[in-house]
Simulated scan of single mutants.
Amino acid sequence: MHLIIPYAASHALNGPEIWAGLQLPNLQALLSLLQRQQVLQGPEATALHLPHERLQAQALGWAIDTAALPWAAWHLAGQGQASAEPQAWMTPCHWQIGMDQVVMADPEHLHLSDDESQQLLLAMQPFLQEDGLQVTWHSALLWHAQGPLLADVPTASLDRVIGQNVKDWMPDHPAARPLQRLQSEMQMLLYNHPVNDAREARRQHTVNAFWLHGAGTLPVSGTVAAQPFAGAPGSAISAPVTVSTALRSAALHGNAQAWQQAWLQLDATAVADLLQHVKATGQGTLSLCSEDAAHTYTVAPAAWHHRITRLFNKPSPAAALQALITN
């Protein structure tokens, strides 16, 4: 049993007030039984993907020293439709255009309906098909794209870009130039689309862009999850690895109170379950992740003096979490 916790700590949520009073008894008990075995802090080449995404890929048997983590192809293969053709997820989104930067708003905050999403995709289809892209609707914020144009295009994960200047994460690669042209065409197409006119009348953000993510070709070797795809990349992967999304929204938006409440709930549920599993079986793994680091703890034999040290110096959850954003 391996529990991966994204946003266990966040650079957007750091300060004495964040840690004061954050009581996580199950995490503290779990840390007293585990030892830190792996520290994942990626070089620039892997900065396109968050550490927890790389841990998911590692659990699937993929190489993580690559610019492509093919979550879209993985989903298709999990549905029994494996393909050697490059694939990607396409998410409709809103870019807030300022004087010197373009910031991506959280697509979830669009509250885009299925009908609106399908209408927008229908309008875009002739342009997509002209570039050899087969795009099918999966959900309001996830469209599945497939085609040669997606080969060798390094794409940043959606969570990397939310709230950030999109120019910092646009693929700087020759293979991305047709996609950049397509992005510009879609912005012009969507500007006066009836869906956006209606959204403007309701004072809602319009859909004025899309973001490609999870691009690539599924490795020949590697695991295909038995569990169905549940939304954003890897809400669950092949058992017994579980990835929690409980802290994601609060961390992305710097909501300290919501993040603390989510941690208390997580401690009482998934962390408590892992603790009981470790006590019952003597096995278990915990990965705590921030935006740029992941620390993995496992059950491992310890020398007698280490056991005594741990008995009298029980690790503090706050210290373990702060280490994710200070190392």
Score class of each variant (00 low, 15 high):
293 A>G: 00
47 A>V: 09
79 Q>T: 06
274 L>D: 08
34 L>S: 06
312 F>I: 14
296 T>Y: 02
9 A>N: 12
37 Q>C: 07
210 F>A: 02
215 A>T: 07
315 P>K: 10
27 L>N: 09
32 S>F: 00
160 R>P: 02
263 W>V: 04
251 A>I: 08
121 L>T: 07
27 L>V: 09
1 M>P: 11
85 E>K: 09
106 D>Y: 05
119 Q>R: 15
324 L>E: 06
172 D>T: 11
290 S>P: 06
201 A>S: 13
102 V>R: 14
161 V>F: 12
123 A>E: 06
76 L>R: 14
76 L>D: 12
145 A>W: 10
40 L>I: 00
143 W>G: 02
173 H>C: 13
294 A>L: 06
262 A>N: 04
253 H>T: 15
133 L>H: 05
195 V>L: 06
145 A>Y: 09
241 V>N: 01
235 S>Y: 13
309 T>N: 15
270 A>Y: 01
92 P>H: 10
30 L>G: 05
287 S>W: 08
108 E>H: 13
83 S>Y: 07
283 Q>Y: 03
91 T>Q: 06
267 D>F: 07
279 K>I: 03
230 A>C: 10
257 Q>V: 12
96 Q>G: 02
214 G>E: 04
23 Q>M: 08
148 P>N: 11
103 V>A: 03
320 A>E: 10
214 G>H: 06
47 A>Q: 15
327 N>A: 11
50 L>M: 13
217 T>G: 00
192 N>W: 04
202 R>T: 07
39 V>G: 03
107 P>D: 05
259 W>T: 05
200 E>I: 03
295 H>F: 15
159 D>P: 00
139 S>D: 15
84 A>V: 10
160 R>A: 02
222 G>T: 10
121 L>N: 08
315 P>W: 09
175 A>R: 14
257 Q>L: 12
133 L>T: 02
265 Q>F: 00
154 P>Q: 04
183 Q>C: 03
198 A>P: 01
83 S>D: 14
95 W>Y: 11
6 P>L: 07
245 T>F: 13
57 A>E: 08
268 A>P: 09
308 I>R: 10
